Amino acid sequence: MKKHCEYQLMKFYKSRYRCSLSNKGCPSVAESTYESFKKEFVYPNHFQTLEQLKVQLFDYVNW
């Protein structure tokens, strides 16, 4: 179930942000922020549903 939710998170993220962080002109700050996001939010959490993921993501972003 964890792999499925991680896949859903990445699918959700990619649908909102189409720019690749490795594209020319994308600062290293963006890459660092994305890495921190994964370490603080994605890896330690286990989401049972996509709705749970969306609620927790909203809370994480808007703390």
Rank of each mutant, 00 (worst) to 15 (best):
K2S: 15
K2C: 06
K3M: 09
K3P: 10
K3V: 06
H4Q: 03
C5K: 12
E6S: 14
E6I: 13
Q8K: 09
L9T: 06
L9G: 12
K11Y: 09
F12A: 14
K14Q: 04
S15W: 01
S15F: 00
S15N: 06
R16C: 08
C19F: 08
C19H: 07
S20N: 04
L21R: 09
L21N: 04
L21E: 03
L21K: 03
L21Q: 06
S22V: 15
S22D: 11
N23Y: 03
N23S: 07
K24Q: 06
K24C: 04
C26E: 02
C26N: 02
P27I: 00
S28P: 13
S28C: 09
S28D: 14
S28L: 06
V29L: 14
A30W: 08
S32H: 15
T33G: 13
T33H: 08
Y34V: 08
Y34G: 05
E35L: 07
S36L: 15
F37E: 09
K38P: 03
K38H: 01
K39E: 15
E40H: 11
E40F: 13
E40C: 02
F41P: 10
V42N: 04
Y43C: 01
Y43P: 03
Y43M: 12
P44S: 11
P44M: 08
P44V: 11
P44W: 06
H46Y: 14
Q48L: 11
T49L: 04
T49F: 01
L50R: 00
L50P: 01
E51G: 09
E51F: 01
Q52Y: 07
L53F: 10
K54L: 02
V55Y: 10
V55D: 11
V55K: 04
Q56M: 14
L57P: 01
F58L: 02
D59G: 02
D59T: 12
Y60P: 04
V61H: 09
N62L: 02
N62W: 00
